[in-house]
Nucleic acid binder design. Structure first.
Lengths: 210, 210
DNA sequence: AGGGCCTTGTTATATATTTGACAGTCTTTC
DNA sequence: GAAAGACTGTCAAATATATAACAAGGCCCT
């Protein structure tokens, strides 16, 4: 808890900085000013400086920011200094899609297993990761120090999974089911509510046509 | 453009209201007060009343809101009064997952086709929807009045798709590729940046452990 | 090595968003 | 049908977030 009061709005911009800095790094760009970055990323230069300054003075007057250093610093802030063991619950299309994303692995999110209740998929190997029976879930995640669970089940199965998770040492849930999980403990929950997002598209579409 | 200045923050809460109201409707709950809704949905009662009041006085003093009416009104606001034709570009796991979500269809997002460049998947049928060659894309979306495209390609393919889209009558993009598309026209772009979201999880995880 | 130019860090200002308060009105009950 | 209670709609206040402004310090060129 070293950081004082960083607002969530700032936090949600950090991954975007991280992404753009990675791209610059790949393109051999060594330095960047808040003004230049502003043009690329679409935030104001002022906001960029203020965002970054929440975490320390990473820049240098008259020069700007060193891309490599800044990338590394933001990585540290985002917790990318060590790997995290993860599992996926729900081995349907979405679960399989996530299992195949190599970028998650590259960032340190290490998939240890997948789980399902459907006998038809239990035993399958997706991208070299085995689909296990949900019965083994609690034992497995505790034994393998799993810290994050991606919930890719149907709406109805999700709360049940959340209940199981609360009996384990798991610390965070990445939830793709269209439901707000009821969690008592201080487990971190991050939702991807696809439908909610799609409905904002139709809202803007409607507005645009009027 | 009848609505004055509704903030995006409000818009992004509407789908959540919609979701909760649907649930109440399914459970035969006829009326709801902002106070009760507040308890369920987690916004303050004051915020709920103010949000809803942006669009008109849907409630009644001393009574609250009629669930069915409010559900319907929010549906209208969100543009759910008519179907939208959509296509998916990228028939990998993620594209297939989206093709299989019946809830999108139920809300009126009608999948007309999928597209890919990979000969191995072209010709397949996913949930009764054919995967077409990307060569046919522009012709198809114009002929079938497609308004929304879900981009489920890799990072590198996405901009190319966006460029093609800009030559058509398509009005909105739902982008799952980890890149910010460069769009000149006034096409609506809504991003699902999974990696960005996952990185906030690791941030909060790190914070929680310190 | 010195001066002009850049660019940051930071403070001040403006804007946006959320919360609180309450008058007015409809419901419900007796 | 009258009085008590329950809510909304709305205005005001508080908080949060974003933008602008600028002094101070390092860079870069001559």
């Amino acid at each position: 808890m070293k950081d004082k009061n960083i607002s969530v709005a700032v936090i949600r911009r950090l991954p975007k900085y991280h992404r753009y800095l990675k791209e610059m790094l790949d393109n051999d760009i060594k330095r960047i000013s808040s003004k230049e970055l502003s043009k690329m990323i679409g935030f104001t230069a002022s906001q960029i400086r203020q965002d970054l300054n929440n975490f320390g003075g990473f820049g240098q007057q008259g020069y700007g920011y060193n891309v490599e250093d800044l990338y590394s610093e933001i990585g540290k802030i985002l917790g990318l200094t060590r790997p995290y063991n993860v599992v996926i619950v729900g081995a349907g299309n979405l679960g399989q899609a996530l299992a195949n994303y190599s970028s998650f692995d590259r960032l340190g999110f290490k998939l240890q297993a997948m789980f399902d209740v459907n006998p038809k998929v239990i035993g399958l190997k997706i991208n070299n990761i085995e689909v296990l029976d949900m019965d083994q879930f609690e034992q497995f995640v505790n034994d393998h120090n799993v810290e994050i669970v991606y919930i890719c089940t149907s709406r109805d199965g999700a709360q049940e999974v959340a209940d199981k998770i609360q009996k384990t040492k798991v610390r965070a849930i990445w939830n793709f089911a269209p439901v707000d999980l009821k969690i008592k403990s201080d487990i971190i929950v991050e939702n991807i509510h696809l439908i909610d997002n799609l409905l904002t598209v139709s809202y803007f579409l409607k507005e645009n046509l009027e």
